[in-house]
């Protein structure tokens, strides 16, 4: 290597680290350090005020016996079980509808996407009005079909379902766009060949289209799962976890413990458990969906 080249290289190395300095420092202070702190805090009874002690795995033992924790687990599981499949089906369904290159379908693409743009708080406020038992649009529409709508957010049986509906409405547009991108990559010859062989629309979809977009499905499933496990905004704004803890989600519970009651040691342990759950489900999803991708 000539002297000039190695001088350029040294120059580039110095410049690169200067260019990277701020993001790397922020990474160290606001990601690496907090993750390590979370592990440490979860082993203490730190509560902001007063002294704190090392309590070993006591926090984790406490979680197992914490009935509210299990309520939050059940609620988050219910939300996930409803939201993930609904979010997947609606985004795929709408993408299939709009998978054609015409100006009309581009206009509808924009209209379908509009709920994504608003914040969860604004969306929640809109739905708070839509879901009003007496004056809400939803129950008015149900009334036209002779259905007597429930009190939604004020009934523990319906509150979570209402939050799921709102979340699907608010989020499907983004995943629809990902699916639209993937559908563009489905080889047209393959679809035509299958059709020539006499496959019906449903069989073409099931055996040709669906396998061809499995990478997008994997991505969307991962995004939906991670979002579902961390649902908070909607439950906070709409129901404050109620009625009767029926919409108390895990992140809500962590927020309440950590910042409502300032039990930050316990909250850290809770968040670590949630982190592990997200990790396990992400890996399981990668295994299951990933294996299909390899075929």
């Amino acid at each position: 290597m000539s002297a000039a080249v190695s001088a350029t290289r040294r120059q580039q190395t110095i410049s690169a680290w200067i260019f990277l300095a701020v993001p790397v420092a922020l990474f160290a202070v606001f990601l690496l350090l907090p993750v390590l702190m979370a592990i440490g805090l979860s082993l203490t009874d730190y509560a902001v005020i007063g002294d704190f002690e090392w309590v070993g795995l006591d926090n984790y033992a406490r979680i197992v016996d914490d009935p509210i924790f299990w309520v939050a687990v059940r609620n988050t599981a219910l939300y996930t079980v409803l939201y993930v499949p609904a979010g997947l089906v609606v985004s795929l369904g709408t993408a299939l509808l709009l998978n054609r290159s015409s100006r009309v379908s581009r206009v509808f693409r924009t209209l379908f996407y509009i709920p994504v743009v608003s914040s969860t708080v604004a969306t929640a406020a809109i739905w708070f009005w839509l879901l009003n038992p007496q004056y809400g649009l939803l129950n008015a529409v149900l009334g036209w079909f002779g259905i007597n709508g429930p009190a939604w957010l004020y009934e523990s049986r319906w509150a979570m379902i209402a939050i799921v509906m709102m979340s699907v409405w608010a989020g499907f547009g983004a995943n629809m766009i990902i699916y639209l991108g993937a559908l563009q990559g489905v080889p047209g010859e393959l679809v035509d060949a299958a059709r020539v062989d006499g496959a019906g629309a449903f069989r073409v979809f099931w055996h040709v289209t669906l396998p061809a977009i499995s990478r997008a499905t994997f991505l969307i499933l991962t995004l939906l799962l991670i979002a579902a496990f961390q649902v908070f905004d909607q439950a906070y704004v709409l129901t404050k976890g109620g009625p009767g803890n029926s919409t108390l989600t895990l992140v809500y519970y962590i927020y309440d413990r950590g910042f409502g009651r300032l039990e930050m040691g316990y909250a850290s342990a809770l968040s670590f458990v949630l982190f592990l759950a997200i990790l396990v489900f992400s890996i399981a999803n990668a295994r299951v969906t990933g294996r299909e991708n390899d075929r």
Partner: peptide, 16 residues
Amino acid sequence: SMMVPGIITMVPTFLV
């Protein structure tokens, strides 16, 4: 770091 869920760093970041 994009894969790390925000919830895990919430309490410590507040303290930092």
